[in-house]
């Protein structure tokens, strides 16, 4: 246990000494605040516009048809989820890469293994150290969210909303760690480190950006600004009834989206934050049951990642050559 702790501590200290992480973390936090600021201003602007329209209607002696915009504070976090999807994954890739790169470039693996330390100890220590860093990073993002809510919009959250943020923190940590394990695996397995990094970015590109983009492009409702069904005055049951006749196409689209870990993370996070309006009406346990598959998928991928890393550490001889 002590050996694991020592390796984890060293890993953690190395991350803090690295300028690259400061840059990426700074970027993530800046974009988080920017995103909340923009969302809050858009919401305030909508409220102002509604109030102006209401005043005009009342002066004409009419009643408004649309309900007043209702603020669900967590709805404002859509941009934060997007940035964690993109930049969080890049940070995960960098952590995995640098965790191996520093040992390969300084040829310290042999030295480490000449001590009473096993490959398993190194793996556990490295994963634990990085997990700790990722956890602190995501918690810090959560703290920035709470502070921004309070500072920008004067918003304080309820206990349930805080619980939702906590669950979001957990799935975000798992999501980032999946990319860590992938990058760790490739950095050990590939002969050239920059090749490992480029392959990771290609995988990142396909799973984080391309597959979700293809899914969105294929969405019939996504073909008109504001939504196709809304533009022709359809409600949800009518929309479902029409789409039921295109189940083959819809299933293909859904399958493409489900191939992407990012989409699974996004669906779970969007459900927790009520970004799809139907989830605003649901209780937290109902949301969790609805999103169980996506949440379990994230944990399964993380577990597969850890076992793959253990396998490659055990098998690969390049690793020892430095």
């Amino acid at each position: 246990m002590n050996k694991h702790f020592l390796i984890a501590k060293k890993e953690f200290q190395d991350i803090f000494r690295n300028r690259t992480f400061s840059i990426m973390l700074g970027l993530l936090l800046t974009l988080t605040v920017t995103s909340i600021l923009v969302s809050t201003l858009v919401f305030k602007s909508q409220v102002t516009q509604y109030e102006n329209s209401l005043a005009v209607l009342q002066s004409l002696g009419k009643m408004p048809v649309d309900a007043a915009p209702k603020l669900f504070p967590l709805n404002l976090l859509r941009g934060v989820v997007d940035y964690l999807e993109i930049i969080g994954a890049i940070i995960g890739i960098l952590l995995g890469y640098l965790s191996i790169a520093k040992e390969k470039s300084t040829k310290t693996f042999k030295l480490l293994l000449s001590r009473p330390i096993t490959k398993k100890d190194i793996l556990v220590g490295k994963i634990f150290g990085n997990l700790l860093f990722v956890s602190l990073m995501v918690l810090f993002v959560a703290a920035v969210i709470l502070a921004s809510f309070y500072a920008i919009g004067g918003i304080t959250l309820t206990a349930v909303e805080l619980m939702k943020i906590l669950l979001f923190v957990i799935i975000s940590i798992v999501y980032v760690m999946v990319f860590f394990t992938l990058s760790f695996f490739l950095s050990v397995q590939q002969k050239t480190l920059s090749n490992a990094l480029i392959i990771c970015f290609v995988i990142w590109l396909v799973f984080v950006l391309v597959l979700p983009q293809i899914g969105d492009t294929m969405d019939p409702d996504n073909q008109v600004p504001g939504g196709f069904f809304k533009s022709i005055g359809f409600d949800r049951p009518h929309e479902k009834a029409v789409l039921a006749k295109f189940s083959g196409y819809e299933n293909t689209r859904n399958f493409i989206e489900q191939l992407s870990i990012t989409k699974q993370y996004e669906r779970a996070a969007f459900a927790l934050f009520g970004i799809k309006p139907m989830y605003n009406e649901m209780m937290l346990p109902e949301i969790l049951v609805d999103q169980l598959f996506n949440i379990i998928s994230l944990f399964v991928l993380f577990t597969i990642g850890i076992f793959s890393d253990a396998y490659i550490m055990h098998k690969d001889k390049q690793f020892l050559r430095g």
């Binding site: 920017t34 923009v38 102002t48 997007d82 979700p212 073909q223 008109v224 504001g226």
Partner: peptide, 27 residues
């Protein structure tokens, strides 16, 4: 996102969502 209030991943969509910046002087 900063210039047109577009969500990061929405800007990848060929059809962009409604993102009226409305009349906010700050935006």
């Amino acid at each position: 996102e900063m210039s047109s209030a577009l969500y990061p991943t929405s800007s990848l969509n060929p059809i962009l969502p409604q993102t009226e910046i409305l009349n906010s002087p700050v935006l």
